[in-house]
Nucleic acid binder design. Structure first.
Lengths: 203, 203
DNA sequence: CGGCATCGATACATGGTGTCACCTCCACGA
DNA sequence: TCGTGGAGGTGACACCATGTATCGATGCCG
């Protein structure tokens, strides 16, 4: 389902079962973390929740942090695919930027209900930022850079900084209630990127 | 240093010592968390690092999460005081908003070096948002509301949403390197709040 | 059909957890 | 000044989580 990872004809029964178990484990751990807080999750609890032996669990993951990290990684990959699709479906740099921004805001918004937002931050352990996440930031940066080159986004700031601004600002969507509010957030956030900035001060 | 909290003549030896120990404990725990990750911090480690008995530690805090939470709370109180001061020192709603925004960005920026950023998110455990933090958001909302009332900030969005946008966007400062970059971030972020928004689409 | 490898569970040594009873020492009143 | 109350600090204890080693079971491959 998430793509074959070994040469064809070799991913039949064993590997698929292992992936199934991995999925069960990660979801069980995430469920526990959202319910009782990430600090209190133990390997024993995860094993019980997943319905496997505790020793077996250690053959899949070394500790709780790795499990949560794997869960997060899987979802980031999904989001990356979705954003790529949204970007490619839109025409023109402005539309593409809007599509990616709106898509990212939606993703953040959906995190509100089905899980503790702060868990995401937890898995961002120090330097352990995942490869998929770098790709995600890279996607945003590319889209932005294109928009800057076409003159629809202000060029007076480094693209990396604008991308950082964009991602953080849109992350506020996770605290919003309605979809309308998310739409307003996207509009406001993109407004700051307008090529007609900066403006003369009114004071 | 942090202001007397009991009626005068009553904060002599015992209470001050207790506060001293609390401070030592919280800083020891934060140090461990930044070094080895928050998931691996144990009460035993904290007790050893703080130089007290493990049983004594339980007379101050029930678990690791509470310790980290207390550390964070103390700093939020400091930040709140600083932002209040900045706001009161500035004249006019526009200047006040700029001062508060710049101050908050600086605070986020300073978190980069001396500690893992994600720890902050960790202590935001679910519904356990601290009172001081609510006050901080309230401060931002008040400043924004005043600016909206005076016509220097766009009025086509709810103030709570704009405050959320502002705080999240400025939070990007923690990933920036230079002070100049932080200044650019503040400018870009505040640009979206300009009262001359929304603009006609160019497409 | 039998070797082979991997999966899964019980067993055990180690270390963290939470909580006593007990000790020490400051604060206050006679 | 001194004794007593009460609060802080500590060692000890029982319990649980951890990580690993060993063993039986199951399915793939020649």
């Amino acid at each position: 389902m998430y793509g074959a990872r070994v040469p064809p004809l070799w991913t039949n029964t064993v590997a698929s079962h292992r992936e199934e178990v991995r999925r069960t484990i990660t979801e069980a751990a995430w469920s526990l973390a959202t319910r009782h807080g990430p600090m209190s999750v133990t390997m024993s609890q995860v094993a019980t929740e997943a319905g496997i032996g505790r020793a077996t669990l250690y053959k899949y993951f070394p500790d709780v942090e790795s499990i949560l990290h794997a869960y997060h990684e899987r979802h980031v990959v999904e989001h990356l695919a979705r954003l790529s699709q949204l970007r490619d479906a839109a025409v023109g740099p402005k539309r593409r930027l809007e599509a990616v921004a709106a898509g990212y805001a939606q993703i953040c918004h959906h995190r509100t209900g089905h899980g503790n937002v702060d868990l995401v931050a937890l898995v961002h352990q120090a330097d352990r930022v995942s490869e998929a996440e770098k790709q995600l930031v890279a996607l945003v940066e590319e889209t932005l850079a294109d928009a800057v080159a076409k003159g629809v986004v202000r060029a007076d700031n480094p693209v990396e900084e604008l991308a950082l601004y964009l991602v953080h600002a849109l992350g506020a969507a996770q605290n919003l209630r309605s979809k309308a509010a998310v739409q307003r957030l996207v509009t406001v956030t993109l407004g700051a990127l307008d090529h007609r900035h900066p403006r003369p001060a009114t004071d």
